[in-house]
């Protein structure tokens, strides 16, 4: 469990990061908190030729409330998300990420870019309709969360792009519920309920390759159905797969229950 050899570059600017990634021609990886990357390096499941350390890049460590949203720099640690009060849903979700040591190092940009379908922040990002600011060789562009996540651990980012910040809209009502075997584990199911621009969005993590909107369940609510009905609709519209921790029917049932709990927490009965 020791990583294969790689080159290391400690970048001082976004431009430098993009340049090194470009030169690596698809073989470079960004090192931020390292909480997902370092284990896969140690298992030699990832073998980048160069690691670009972005921890000293200035300007990406701040949380900034703006009109109707909160802008989170890519290097903001999960522990900072827990502590901030501008975006209560983000604070609640971040509490569920790993353990203290992981939250102290892990970053927002890293979690979003890693695109683990069982991780909390991608679900919140899709749940509130967040957008990422992405820097590349030709400058910056904005990518909506639901266009960012392509598949498990795969994003629409190019090899020479990096996330520099994420804008999380502030929901007017919200609820969060997660089910995992132990506290701190990746979720079997995460449910995020967020009312944004007058519409209640229901998003599930852990049930598909990317965070999944429960559109049928949302429609049930739009049609003035109950939380209970919406939960049943959510359970019915997903297609989870079985693994060591449970069968597909079990996951479906848990997903429904998490949706129900998240809705109740959002004040939607």
């Amino acid at each position: 469990m020791k990583c294969a050899p790689f080159d290391y570059v400690c970048a001082n600017s976004v431009e430098e990061v993009v340049k090194v990634l470009g030169e690596a021609d698809g073989d470079g990886k960004i090192l931020a908190g390292g909480q997902s990357l370092v284990p896969v390096l140690a298992l030699r499941m990832a073998r980048p030729s160069v690691l670009v350390d972005v921890n000293r890049v200035p300007g990406m460590g701040r949380i900034r409330p703006v009109e109707g949203a909160v802008e989170v720099g890519a290097l903001v640690r999960h522990s900072q998300l827990v502590e901030q009060t501008h975006h209560p849903l983000l604070a609640e979700a971040a509490r569920w990420i790993g353990h203290t040591a992981i939250r102290t190092r892990g970053t927002t940009g890293g979690s979003i870019a890693h695109a683990d379908p069982s991780a909390e922040l991608p679900v919140v990002a899709v749940g509130v309709g967040a957008s990422a600011t992405v820097a590349g060789p030709t400058g910056e562009r904005t990518v909506a969360a639901d266009e960012l996540f392509v598949s498990a651990l795969v994003t629409s980012l190019d090899d020479d792009e990096m996330i520099v910040g994420v804008r999380f809209p502030l929901p007017t009502r919200w609820g969060f519920a997660e089910f995992s075997r132990r506290h701190g584990d990746f979720a079997l199911v995460t449910a995020v309920v967020a009312e944004v621009d007058g519409r209640v969005r229901i998003t599930l993590g852990g049930v598909a390759a990317v965070p999944q909107r429960a559109l049928a369940a949302e429609q049930v609510l739009a049609d003035e159905g109950t939380a209970h009905d919406a939960a049943r609709a959510a359970a019915a519209e997903i297609d989870p797969t079985a693994d060591l921790h449970g069968s597909a029917p079990f996951r479906r049932a848990i997903a429904g229950e998490m949706v129900r709990r998240a809705l109740v927490r959002a004040g939607i009965e």
Binding site: R182, H183, D185, L244
Partner: peptide, 25 residues
């Protein structure tokens, strides 16, 4: 729970899959 697949591969090869109780549990 250590789980092998039918070919004899260990499916629970890291502490991500082999769950140990922590002080929280």
């Amino acid at each position: 729970h250590l789980v092998y697949d039918d070919a004899g591969n260990l499916s629970t090869g890291t502490l991500l899959d082999y769950l140990m109780p922590t002080s929280a549990e």
